[in-house]
Structures are given as structure tokens and as C-alpha cells.
Write a protein that binds this DNA or RNA. Structure first.
Lengths: 93, 93
DNA sequence: TTGACATGCAAGATGGCACTTGCCTATTGT
DNA sequence: ACAATAGGCAAGTGCCATCTTGCATGTCAA
């Protein structure tokens, strides 16, 4: 499991996490479209694919193949390590 | 305020945060020593200084000059952005 | 089977980050 | 004043991450 800090270091990957956190189960093409349309980021399909691979290695994204499509899901659990490592007060909502 | 994600991306900087979170108010030389002695990281003083500058720009470290020494303090507040951006369930302690 | 669709693999170019080196400034003590 | 201490600035180097390009693999529909 690669470190999540490196995965979060890239702005494009953070936007991808935003997209996946919003609506679940998006494909590579859908994410490419979302990046271009809604975030003004225009990159090749492979660039997005490589970003998703980094996120998956870090455990922040899980995938599920259905047919020729691959659906991506946000998995927030690895983020808990950050709070475990540097705990700080939380306003008890 | 530079982004905290880039600041967290480097392993040395994370160890520095660990050191500062443990005991407050350390100087550059003290941190250099801690890196070498307790973590097996042997780097030049400038390397550590540049890491501290990145952490300070990200708001994760605040400094206070006293005489010719500069004391560094861990400031965890910026980390809250991560939880705000991707909220996930926390075991209600 | 043939073509279109969705994705994967691999090699190359570019830019940025981490680290070093050398010199400089500021503070303290004698 | 002088030396020693603590730290800062700036240029240079090497490497890694990101991105692109081109081709390959697997899936579905007609």
C-alpha cells in the first residue's frame, strides 16, 4: 500500500477524489469529462488513468470491472491515518 | 498559504512534524540532531531548513525567534481541511 | 467476424523537487 | 573587536513524477 501522502500531493488527484466522493461509481471516461467540463483541466485519458492508479495503490480508490467498463469508488478509510498520526482537537459536532 | 498536501508529501517533513508534535519548541539544530540520531536520516542543515520553510508556508509550523535561535512549533489546524474536504465517519470517542 | 468502444502497457520528454555547496547576516560571549 | 554560534540566501545538480504518444488487450453489438 503506497503512501497516501504522495497520492494526495497532486491537485488533479484531489479533484478526482472530489468527483468520486460526490457521486459513486464513475468510469475513466466520465472522470475525464468531469475534469474537462467542470474543472477546466484538460488532460489525456492516460494521464487520468495513471492518476487513478496512484489513488488505487494508496487505497483511496477501489475499482470494480463490469464488462468493458471499470467503475471507481472513493474509499476514505486511509485518510484516518492522518488524524491518528497527528491528532488534534475536533469541535464535537 | 501554500497547500498542505505538498507539505505532507515528503517523508522527512512528516518526521519533522512528528518531532514537533512530541516536544514543542525545537530549533533547527535540535531537529537536525533528532533526524540523524533517532531516525537515521542524515541530511545537511540547509535541507532541514528548507523543509521547515515548506512546513511554515503551509501553516503547519509556526516559528518564534529568541536571540539567535528560532523555535519551531507544530500547528495542527491546517490538517482539518482534509477532514472538511473528504469527511468520513469517526468512531465517536 | 468485424468494427467500435473502454481501458491497459510502455517508452520518451519535460518540469519541478530535494539536496548540496558556498557565502552571507545576525546574535552572543569574552 | 573578535570569534563562535544559529540561521538565511542563492545557484547548481540529479532524480523522480507527470504527461504525452503509440500500440495492444479485452468487451460488446451487428
Amino acid at each position: 500500500m503506497a503512501d497516501i501522502y504522495r497520492a494526495l500531493a497532486d491537485a488533479t488527484r484531489r479533484v478526482l477524489l472530489d468527483e468520486l466522493a460526490a457521486g459513486e461509481g464513475k468510469t475513466l471516461f466520465e472522470l475525464c469529462g468531469a475534469l474537462t467540463m467542470q474543472h477546466g483541466l484538460s488532460m489525456s485519458r492516460q494521464a487520468v488513468s495513471q492518476h487513478l492508479a496512484v489513488l488505487e495503490e494508496a487505497g483511496l480508490v477501489t475499482t470494480e470491472r463490469r464488462g468493458r467498463s471499470k467503475f471507481h469508488y472513493f474509499t476514505p478509510e486511509p485518510l484516518a491515518e492522518i488524524q491518528r498520526r497527528w491528532p488534534h482537537e475536533r469541535t464535537p459536532s
